[in-house]
Amino acid sequence: MSIKEKARELLEGEVDGVLGYRLAGGSHLPHLFTAADIEEMAGDYPAGERYPLASIVRRLQAADPGIRIAVVARGCDERSLVELFKQGQVNLGRTVILGLACEEELARGCGCAVPYPSEILEGRRVEGVPDDSLVEKMDGMPAEDRLDFWLSRFGSCVKCYGCRNVCPLCYCKECALDDAEMVERGRVPPAQPAFHLIRAIDMAGRCIDCGLCEEACPMGIPLRTLYRKVGRVVEDNLGYRPGRSPEEKSPLAVLGTEKDLE
């Protein structure tokens, strides 16, 4: 059964809306379908048109906690939803995953470790192709060269906040990056490396490696490499990989209270 067929079926009473893509003018646009317009749902999912659907689910549920939503989800979308669930931002009990496996080209391009959701409705499962080559390359550089590399990349930042705005895991009402005490207003590029390190630290134990930040960066700053590095630190030390399973406890939720983590 295709995602669209399943969506049509769910709309007969199981869900209130289906979040997917509507084809308009050759573009795939995020859209919440109801029974009235489900026929307009696109049946294809181009690799170059991924949007932060998990954020949209979070916002829709915040506006209407009773809403039941089915959502087209690649592996990264599902990981976002799982991590948001663990942080109390998404109700998985009211969310139906319409699983979409990524094609090999996209999986490879993303260097994705898990390019498929837990249950696949459409697409063929290809094995993960985690690409840590840039992280390893950075780790192999002398600290001074590494700092130079990052400072030169951070120096091109136009402070668009796109990395934060597009991030499915960024939902804070008050963001440190908007705090004038922490980030000087009107200064472009922002203070280095503080601006990007604030975000990197916020991503530790939370980033599910969707890569939307890097896609949204007009200056091509290799943000994903940075966040993969902090993710690896968390995984190596605490054995935690964000978004992997709804049952696993986030170290952010247990640190300071469980003795085995001292």
């Binding site: 573009s27 795939h28 995020p30 181009p46 170059g48 048109e49 991924r50 949007y51 932060p52 136009v158 402070k159 668009c160 906040y161 796109g162 705005n165 597009v166 896609e215 949204a216 960066c217 007009p218």
Partner: peptide
């Protein structure tokens, strides 16, 4: 949201656009 695949900006925006 920035429009993916747009011929001018391909999924990026500056601060003002956002």
């Amino acid at each position: 949201l920035p429009q993916k695949g747009h011929p001018v900006s391909d999924g990026t925006l500056c601060l003002k656009g956002w």
